[in-house]
Design a protein around this nucleic acid. Structure first.
Lengths: 202, 202
DNA sequence: CCTACCGATCGGTAGG
DNA sequence: CCTACCGATCGGTAGG
């Protein structure tokens, strides 16, 4: 049997920082999820004993909070400008999809944690995350609302359902999009934007 | 402080069965996820002490496996016939979406567990789940492939991306669709099927 | 950054 | 179905 937890990093090799701990925690949380990763796993990954992690970080949950907030902020920073550009609703939706997949291809593991594991935060901290998610959602609501108002889009019976469907599709792409795969973020985003705007019917 | 775990069900009231334990486990796993729910939580929910659960079930992981497999089977049973019907690809896609949302509205909590928590199973058990998920995915692949082949759908550059996007959208609907909300499964499915087939552009 | 350890909780079992 | 308990593991800390 020997050890289940492999000592992945030799102790005392290079300096350990809060950033390094965060990086390794992202990889571990993304792979196995927050509740099943122990401080001992994180310690092994950076080459410290579990108790020594507390020299650099204040606790396990605070580590998660930082990962989640930065993870969502990455999307707000990239999609905000795309969604607010002074162009047609169709172009803005296309640009928003593209921006989303570009951030996803850069930060796939952090996205996994940010989108799916914020629920392990305490209620108070969840509130901050929900507010950020709402801003993210509103970017898409605005595009669709504008498009319907100007007549560029069809009069949808339930625009909110469409927005939720789009966002759900984007969120879930975290599960299948491969940054190193044969299709680039732009190619995937264009294909999906075409399907969303024009439909798949001939 | 007192107790965090509320004794939700009085001990010794009505007979406990494997089915009751499964029902309660679905609710608990759906709300908090598998790894953070203990046998003590499940015991509280059915009115047994944790050790007594093993009279009815063989272990925590086996409980999860049953919930996941039945949860996915519900979708195969409902979508299979819809996807294989002798009608147009558009009608079959519409019927598949509708069937999906109908199962979701019936089994929302179990779907949450089945779609998102099968990753907590041991590798061997995950294999069985992956095979079922593949059959589910293939139902949609077949519809899109048929539609493209007959010319009913556009020649998509990457049909697989579209299928993954659709399925991701459906899977993620588990997070926002409310069975008791103002919109029925059929209404939501129709709205989304329209958007998928015709697009949202005017 | 380590040593040494804390109390709490985990899934599961022996024996009745 | 309960009593009583097992060894393992958890996040975190005191003191150096």
């Amino acid at each position: 049997m020997a050890t289940t937890r492999g000592e992945r990093r030799a102790r005392g090799s290079t300096p350990v920082s809060a950033e390094l701990i965060e990086e390794q925690a992202i990889l571990l949380f993304a792979e196995k999820t927050y509740p099943v990763i122990g401080m001992r796993d994180i310690g092994d990954a950076v080459g410290l004993l579990p108790g020594s992690l507390y020299v650099h970080i204040s606790g396990k949950e605070d580590l998660l909070l930082r990962i989640v907030e930065k993870g969502i902020q990455n999307y707000l920073d990239a999609i905000g400008p795309a969604a607010d550009a002074p162009s047609s609703a169709a172009e803005r939706l296309r640009a928003a999809f593209t921006a989303h997949f570009e951030v996803l291809s850069r930060t796939r593991e952090q996205t996994r944690v940010a989108f799916f594991q914020w629920t392990y935060l305490s209620p108070e901290k969840q509130g901050r995350v929900i507010a950020m998610r709402q801003r993210y959602e509103d970017l898409f609501v605005d595009i669709v609302r504008d498009g319907v108002r100007t007549g560029e889009f069809r009069r949808l019976r339930n625009p909110r359902v469409i927005v939720l469907a789009y966002i759900g599709m984007l969120n879930n792409a975290t599960e299948w999009f491969q940054p190193d795969g044969s299709l680039s973020a732009i190619e995937v985003a264009e294909e999906i934007a075409d399907a969303a705007l024009k439909g798949i019917q001939a």
